[in-house]
Write a protein that binds this DNA or RNA. Structure first.
Length: 493
RNA sequence: GUCCCGUUCGUCUAGCCUGGUCUAGGACGUCGCCCUUUCACGGCGAUAACAGGGGUUCAAAUCCCCUACGGGACGCCA
């Protein structure tokens, strides 16, 4: 069986973009499933766009998502590793130049002495005439003498594209794609300053790193024609190509860098689980063909297949991500949920340091099924840590407004004080009975919830009461009674 | 402008290769009902799509052609 080698080749010009994450994820899943190798290669040959600071941020994005690489450059504190180092394209220029020299020697490339200004003028003329622009091929016709006469004038290197026939690519996702070679320019592979151009660099790197499957965004589909030509000219084994559709934002536009959520780490900030995000992103263009939608990371590795990748771009849908996030939250154990939620409580200024871990797990457990994002934990549990600072106005109107409100809370207070046992089951039974006397359990439950939490919504009342403890509950009911009495003085003239 | 790719419910998609089983399936969303101490969860139900036009065929979401729309490439950027 073939040893699968795939790569993600981001250019470190920003944070980890959601679209890059999708491509990386697909490569990673494929590699892991086939026990292959996942390579990270930094395409940093454009110094104008590369910034060291982004290297760290991008690494953090990958590691948060759980996308680890087997070979790659020093990146985010991880040392360089792998047999085909270096893995930064900027350090591989000599390898690219050597390949270019071979192409020149084998007649697959030629020197071009046209200046940038000449070419710009040519291009401008073509565009003005609404003609497709392609290099005239002026220097292609130069003979040995003419070239010698140029001596060491600055020259770029162009690829000698066949002038007839066609180039065919059997893309795993897009199917067979065919170009007329006359449509393909004699593109530059080496700048006149000797720097390699992207097309040369990728192909040479993929070749030397023995990449078996080139899985990348479909914005590269038309570039692939040039790459196929280069692979052939270099005499290397042709990798399998898979051009996967990109991720669109909710309006159907290309996911711009400035949009919230474009940066993968923003989802972490917003309380999303990495396993939910990767599950969602992979669903943007892939299904197993059955009705399963919620996958663990391991299940994804098992079920994924390149062949079932869709061919059209997908719009990002926050609602579905939210649903999936809830699904994944519910699949966590109470302990796991507690551990993920603790930093969020901390950040919200709720001090949980005095609570023992088991208690915190139970607290996490009683609101687990109510969370859409991890951040929801704050409004679900803040009252455990601080007494309600205010009572929800609408709930006060509804549950504490009538004349018997205070008296009813006195009754509730008594019931709590005399509770047979301080467990949610026992309390539930007590209030069931109390409710019968009061005209429905709702008559006692809502005023109590408001007294204990200050809100009308939250975790199960008896569960939270049990966790809050008897003393705190009695104190809060007392406080509520005083609040009502004080309020009555104001409202009754 | 030239070339390349795409187009099934609002959204993600199944089905398309190997035409009939599709009065087009699932999921999210939305709406309704049930469960219920709240909010959720869960359950049940409803809603809603084959871009348009030609052709091939007994039969087309599925095959072919054209058009429209969307995207991409056309750089000494990646």
């Amino acid at each position: 069986m073939e040893n699968v080698r795939v790569r993600i080749a981001p250019s470190p010009s920003g944070f980890l973009h959601i679209g890059t994450a999708k491509i990386a994820l697909i490569n990673w899943l494929f590699a892991r499933q086939r026990a292959g190798t996942f390579v990270l290669r930094l395409e940093d040959t454009d110094p104008d766009r590369t910034e060291e600071q982004y290297v760290e941020a991008m690494c953090e994005g990958f590691s948060w998502l759980g996308i680890d690489w087997d070979e790659g450059p020093p990146f985010g504190g991880v040392p360089e590793r792998g047999p085909y180092a270096p893995y930064r394209q900027s350090q591989r220029a000599q390898i690219h130049r050597d390949a270019a020299a071979r192409l020149l020697a084998s007649g697959h490339a030629y020197k071009c002495f046209c200046s940038k200004e000449e070419l710009d003028a040519e291009r401008a003329r073509a565009q003005a005439g609404k003609l497709p622009w392609r290099y005239s091929g002026k220097c292609r016709a130069l003979n040995a003498e003419q070239i010698a006469a140029k001596r060491d004038a600055a020259a770029s290197l162009r690829f000698k594209t066949p002038q007839s026939g066609h180039t065919v690519l059997n893309d795993l996702v897009q199917g067979p794609v065919r170009w007329d070679n006359q449509q393909i320019d004699d593109f530059i592979i080496l700048k006149s300053n000797g720097d390699p151009i992207f097309h040369l660099a990728v192909v040479v790197d993929d070749l030397t790193m023995k990449i078996t499957h080139v899985i990348r965004g479909d914005d590269h589909l038309t570039n692939a024609a040039k790459h196929v030509l280069l692979f052939e000219a270099l005499g290397g084994p042709m990798p399998t190509f898979a051009h996967v559709p990109m991720v669109l934002d909710e309006t159907g536009k290309k996911y711009s860098k400035r949009m919230h959520g474009a940066n993968v780490l923003e989802w972490r900030e917003d309380g999303y689980l990495p396993e939910a995000l990767i599950n969602y992103v992979v669903l943007l263009g892939w299904t197993a063909g059955d009705d399963k939608e919620v996958y663990t990371r391991a299940e994804l590795v098992r079920a994924f297949s390149l062949e079932r990748l869709g061919r059209s771009a997908a719009k990002f849908d926050l609602k579905k991500l939210q649903w999936l996030n809830g699904q994944h939250i519910r699949r966590l154990s109470a302990d796991e949920l507690r551990d993920r939620v603790l930093p969020i409580l901390q950040k919200a200024g709720l001090d949980s340091s005095g609570r023992d871990p088991a208690w915190l797990s139970r607290m996490a457990g009683i609101c687990q099924e109510k969370l859409v994002t991890l951040h929801d934990i704050v409004k679900q549990t803040d009252f455990f840590f601080v007494e309600p600072a205010a009572y929800e106005e609408k709930a006060v109107q509804k549950h504490w407004k009538d004349v018997e409100a205070a008296a009813r809370l006195e009754t509730i207070h008594r019931a709590l004080a005399n509770a047979a046992a301080w467990t949610s089951d026992a309390l539930h039974a007590d209030f069931e009975r109390l409710g019968e006397a009061q005209g429905g359990i709702g008559k006692v439950v809502h005023p109590l919830r408001l007294a204990l939490t200050g809100k009308s919504v939250g975790p199960g009342l008896f569960e939270l009461a049990e966790l809050l403890g008897k003393d705190a509950c009695l104190r809060r009911v007392r406080r509520a009674i005083e609040f009502i009495r004080a309020g009555c003085i104001q409202t009754v003239p």
